[in-house]
Computed example of a mutant assay.
Amino acid sequence: MRNFLVILIFFLSIKGFSQELNCSLVVNAEQTGNENFPIFKTLEKQLTEFVNNTKWTNKTVKPQERINCSMIINVSDYSGENFQATLQVQSGRPVYGSSFSTPLYNFNDKDFTFRYLEFQNLIYNPSQFESNLVSVLAFHVYMILALDADSFEQNGGDEYYRQAQVITNYSQQGNFKGWKVEDGLQSRFALIDNVLSPTFKEYRDVMYNYHRNGLDVMSNDVKAGKDEIAESLKKFQAMNSRRPNSFLLRTFFDSKADEIEQIFTDGPSVNIAAVKETLQKVAPMHNSKWQNIKY
């Protein structure tokens, strides 16, 4: 009996440390004029528990290793069980040797409609469509996991990108927007399709080199880290020449523009002219920030 209790406690302790995300999830219903309705608080509570308590991978994760992220669901309209909303997703990861957190993912999902009945069970099935609400959140969870893994290991996010693609494929049967090629160039379909396409192969190389060989090095050698970040950003030039102003480039710089500006406006100095030339070519939408790089 004593041995059984020891084993039980051991497995319970593993289960307690198994979840991968530390996600702040908010349901904002101000646009509906009924933001105080109980259903929105119930939805927020259920989704928070769903995202943070679901076991998304087969890895054992300690509390301090959980990925910090946020999801803000802005409900614009609802009728009965039908909801119209947008979803803003962000995530980051710590930088080695510092108290600084670097942003990895910043995505505004504008095609987010779903059905929800208060207190309904939220079940994630890795190989089968359950609901658009579950599919959309699960898709973004796997994008968060994939980008985090890519930032620590070359192509480390492979299995998570593949699962995001699986979710995309089986969710097309639900006839909700965002899952198909015809849903536009800034959809969930476009995002995962681009990440896995050889046309944008430099994207994942940059994600690794920028973070692991750049930011993580700066605690020991600031100049070496900055030089690596500058070199990694140059890789975007080849990608941009094939597909100018691509969706992936915009998602990267939506997350990184402020950080890059800060890195290169502080010492020690590197070849600022070359850095600015690269940034102006691949991310002209942020030229106002690049003009501030004068160190």
Rank of each mutant, 00 (worst) to 15 (best):
L137W: 05
F189K: 03
F40Q: 01
V206R: 00
C23R: 02
V26Q: 12
V217S: 06
N175G: 09
V206M: 06
C69R: 03
L248D: 02
P38K: 07
F114L: 03
N52P: 00
K59A: 15
R250E: 15
K45M: 10
C69W: 02
I67V: 13
N240S: 06
P198K: 01
A164E: 06
E261S: 11
L279Q: 01
E20D: 01
T102D: 07
S98M: 08
A29W: 03
I67Q: 00
Y208L: 01
Y208D: 00
F100V: 05
K55R: 12
R212N: 13
S79K: 15
N52W: 07
R250Y: 10
K177V: 08
K235R: 13
D111A: 15
K256L: 01
Y124S: 05
Q173S: 13
D258V: 11
Y96K: 04
E30K: 14
E44M: 04
I14Y: 15
R242M: 09
N220D: 13
G92F: 07
Y295L: 13
S91D: 03
A146Y: 00
N194S: 12
Q19Y: 15
G33S: 00
K62Y: 14
F114W: 05
K177E: 15
Q19L: 04
E202H: 07
F83E: 07
K41L: 12
K55H: 12
T48Y: 10
A224Q: 09
N220S: 15
V26C: 04
I123F: 15
P63F: 07
F264V: 06
P63D: 07
F252W: 03
Q262W: 14
F176S: 12
L12G: 10
G267E: 13
D148G: 07
E44G: 03
T251A: 01
L145S: 02
S18E: 08
E261R: 04
K289F: 09
L137S: 04
Q237S: 11
F10T: 10
N121D: 14
Q280N: 15
G92P: 05
I72N: 08
T32C: 06
M285Q: 14
M207Q: 10
A257E: 00
V270I: 11
Q163S: 05
N245M: 09
L215V: 03
R162D: 10
K62I: 10
V95Y: 01
K59M: 10
I263Y: 04
E130T: 15
D150H: 01
D258S: 14
M285G: 09
K180V: 11
Q291R: 10
L5H: 13
E159Y: 10
N28V: 06
F50G: 02
F10V: 15
P94R: 02
A190R: 12
D77N: 13
N132H: 01
G184F: 06
I39W: 03
N53D: 12
M71N: 02
R242A: 12
G184K: 06
S18N: 12
H286N: 13
E231K: 14
I7F: 14
N271A: 11
L122T: 07
V61Y: 03
Y124T: 00
N194W: 07
F37C: 09
G80E: 03
S127C: 08
L215D: 03
E277K: 15
I14N: 09
E130F: 08
D205K: 11
R115A: 12
Q186Y: 14
L122H: 02
F176G: 05
F247L: 08
Q90G: 11
